[in-house]
Design a protein around this nucleic acid. Structure first.
Lengths: 160, 160
DNA sequence: ATCAGTTAGATGATTCGTCAACAAAGTTGA
DNA sequence: TCAACTTTGTTGACGAATCATCTAACTGAT
């Protein structure tokens, strides 16, 4: 392999800022949600799409797709949340392999109580600090990063 | 509490793009580093500052500060890496509480082998997809987010 | 109808990360 | 000097995340 193209000083700063922001921002949000509502970040993430589903019921496969989680991760998380009484599992009527995840009344109460403070925290840490123009550029740029990642991911070097 | 200011459609998209990018980008990098070099993301993160330290030795406190990790996280990680032979622990001569972390020759070889592929991956997924202007705006904006976060973190509401 | 291939989900092992509690050593100030 | 406080690091418990593996069930082609 040829001499690697190391990051120059400017690039290293950009990359470090990205990593630091990710760590601090998500860490702060997670801590605040736990303090305010007793919900972990993972629990909150699961409850959001579930509370938007009709009747609070959604198939595990779809829930995982919306979250961008693999089956194993979701299965483990649902098991823990079932123990806490936030969700329940039911059989899927149209596909015997399937698992339907149901939001319990406890889960509904938890997400309803947690959401207002969470959105306020996201505003305070993120939207209130950035101009709309910056938000748009970030969205456009990150959309491109995501597109590139999914292109590469699907191109499973067919024989090369 | 008053009616929360929910995110509108545009804001929700920006926020979702940020979260999705974080998850996919860091996930891809971690997976690639593991495949290419057998190093986890956490191991790679520890080895980088350590390999830049004089003699490959650094006090745990400083290492943790550079990484933005708390003491516990670093201690657990060092213990696991010690088992793998990547680093060693030594006593600190100037402060009996302290712990000096030393990069072993195995650790040095591992980071030297892993770094070129890692920097290429960062370029491919991130820098090659963004214009320099976008990188600068992102760096500036995220710098502000970090500043705000650290201001709030240090302002421990002194009596309010 | 059957067999190959795929998909859905669960599970165990392992690593990663946080919190709370602890111990030992340093620091400060009366 | 001595007590109060802070700093540094470790540990145990638990939640979180990935990987490999497994079972059951769906799909499609012959």
């Amino acid at each position: 392999m040829a001499e690697p193209r190391w990051l120059d000083g400017r690039e290293a700063l950009v990359w470090r800022r990205y990593l630091d922001t990710q760590r601090e921002l998500l860490g702060a949000l997670e801590r605040e949600t736990l303090r305010d509502s007793g919900l972990s970040g993972a629990e909150y993430a699961v409850l959001v799409p579930l509370s938007a589903a009709t009747d609070g019921v959604q198939r595990a496969r779809e829930l995982g797709a919306e979250l961008g989680w693999d089956r194993s991760r979701l299965s483990h998380q649902i098991r823990r949340m079932e123990k806490r009484g936030l969700v329940g599992r039911e059989e899927c009527e149209t596909d015997a392999r399937g698992s339907m995840i149901r939001l319990t009344s406890t889960g509904r109460a938890a997400i309803d109580a947690a959401a207002p403070a969470h959105v306020e925290n996201v505003r305070r840490h993120f939207f209130d600090v950035l101009t709309v123009e910056e938000q748009e550029i970030l969205s456009e740029a990150f959309g491109r990063v995501l597109t590139r990642l999914s292109e590469e991911g699907s191109t499973k070097d067919p024989c090369d």
